[in-house]
Write a protein that binds this DNA or RNA. Sequence first.
DNA 1: CGCGCGATTGATTCGGCTCAATAACTGTGG
DNA 2: CCACAGTTATTGAGCCGAATCAATCGCGCG
Lengths: 236, 236
Amino acid sequence: MINNKPEIPHCATCGSRHKSIFCNISNEEIDEIDNSKGCHFYNKGQVIFKEGHYTNGIYCVNKGKIKLYKDGPDGKEQIIRFAKEGDIIGYRALLADEKLSASAKTLEETTVCFIPKSVLFDLLKKDFDLTQGVLKLLSHDIGEATKILTDMAQKPVRERVAEMLLLLKETFSTDDEGFINVKLSREEIAGMVGTATESTIRILSEFKKDRLIETSGKRIKITNLPQLTFVANVFD
Amino acid sequence: MINNKPEIPHCATCGSRHKSIFCNISNEEIDEIDNSKGCHFYNKGQVIFKEGHYTNGIYCVNKGKIKLYKDGPDGKEQIIRFAKEGDIIGYRALLADEKLSASAKTLEETTVCFIPKSVLFDLLKKDFDLTQGVLKLLSHDIGEATKILTDMAQKPVRERVAEMLLLLKETFSTDDEGFINVKLSREEIAGMVGTATESTIRILSEFKKDRLIETSGKRIKITNLPQLTFVANVFD
DNA sequence: CGCGCGATTGATTCGGCTCAATAACTGTGG
DNA sequence: CCACAGTTATTGAGCCGAATCAATCGCGCG
C-alpha cells in the first residue's frame, strides 16, 4: 500500500514549499522538519488516511493530487476539498485533537511527507508567523466550507455543477490547451456537487450543447467563462 | 441600534468566562482585555454584524443567544451556527484576514463584549495555550461544517430536521420541563435545515403525530430521543 | 477482438417546493 | 379587556427538479 521511495525530497529544495504554509520559515526550522519527517509514495487511487482514525502528524503534498471526502450515510462519497502540491492535509484532526473527519485518496501518483505532531507543535510554539499562517488557513477553510454548505442547501444542481467547474479551474488551473488540470470521473464530480452521477452527466451534456464547455474524455475545458459564471449564479 | 449599557461586565467576574476560550488565561491577561474591550447590548432581532463587512476585533457573548447565517442567492437565510454565553464570534474573518462570511443576529436580549484585534493578537503571541485553544476551536468548527455539508448534500429533509432538533438540544440544552432552551421561528428552523418553511412544518407535525416531539408555541420538547436519533440516521 | 467498467440517454417515480387559503398568535391602541 | 392588524403557523393541491431504474454505448485494455 505505502511505498517508501529511495529519494526522499528535501524541504530545502522542495519546489512546493514556497506555495505552502511553510513558505517563510527559517533554515533551522526546515532542518528540524527534514530530520524528522517521513515520506510516502502512492499510486493513483490509494488511500492515505481514513475518516474515523487518528493521526499523529500532518501530511504535506510534495507532488500529486488528492481528494478529501466523507462517506455519506448511504455510502456515497462527498468530496470536501482537494489538495495539491504544497498543500497540507490532516491538520484539522490533529489540531482539533479529534478523529479524522474525512478520508484522503490520491487522484494520481502522489508523494507526501509526514510531519510528526511533536515537531509541528514545536514549530508552532516558536514561530508565531507560522502559527498565524495556520490560523489563517483554518479560518479560510471554514469560510469555504460554510459557503459550500449554503450552496448545497439553497442552489439547484445546475448552478452547483457550474460552480464546481469554476472551482476546479481555480484549484488546478488549465493546461496549454485550456483543459482543467485534473482528471475526475463523472461520479467524482457528482460527489463534489452532491448529486446523482446521471444528473451531473445530463447537466454537463447541456453545458456542452450550450457551448459553455468542451470535453475530451475526462478532460474538461471551459469555453465560455462569463456565461458559465452567470449560470453558476455566483455573486461574490 | 447599539446601546452602550452603563454596567459593563468585567471579565474577572464574567460568569461565561469559564466556558469560553479564555477559561485558562492569567489575571494580567484578563486585565489587558478588560481595559481595552467594549461592550454592547442588543435587543432581540438586532444585527451585530453583517456578512461582507470587515471586523476589527472579535465579539465575546456575555449573555444571550445569537444566530450566524449567510444570505443565500435568493435571499433566504442559511443558518450556519449559533453562539451563546461564553462563545466568541467574528474570529474567522479576523484570523483569515477576510470579510465576514456570515451575519450575526440576536435571538434574544444579548450582551456582547468586543475585543480589538490588536489586543487579541497580543495575547495570542504571548500565550500559546490560548493560541492552541483557538486552533482547536477553528479545527472543530471545520469538522462541524463539513459534517453538515455532507448532510445537506446527501440526507433527505426528514433526517436533517431530526438531526437539527438533536443539535439544538445539544447546543442549548433543556429547561426543567424538558423543552429546548431556545425560541426559533419555523422559518429559522427551516433556515438551519436548508429547506422550505412549509416542509419543516409538515415534518414537525409528523414528528408530533409519531410522538417523537411535543411543541408549545415555539417551544419544542423531544419526547422520544432514541427514535428521533434513529430517524436522524446519525451514525457517529 | 471481446470483456468490463464508466459514460450516456431515456422513462418513470417521488420528494420537496411553490402557490394559495386558513387558522392561530402577537402586539397595539382604544 | 377587547377588537384589530400584522405576523407566523398550518394545511392542501399541484408542479417540477432530481433521483432511481433500466438500457445502450463507447472506450481502454488485456
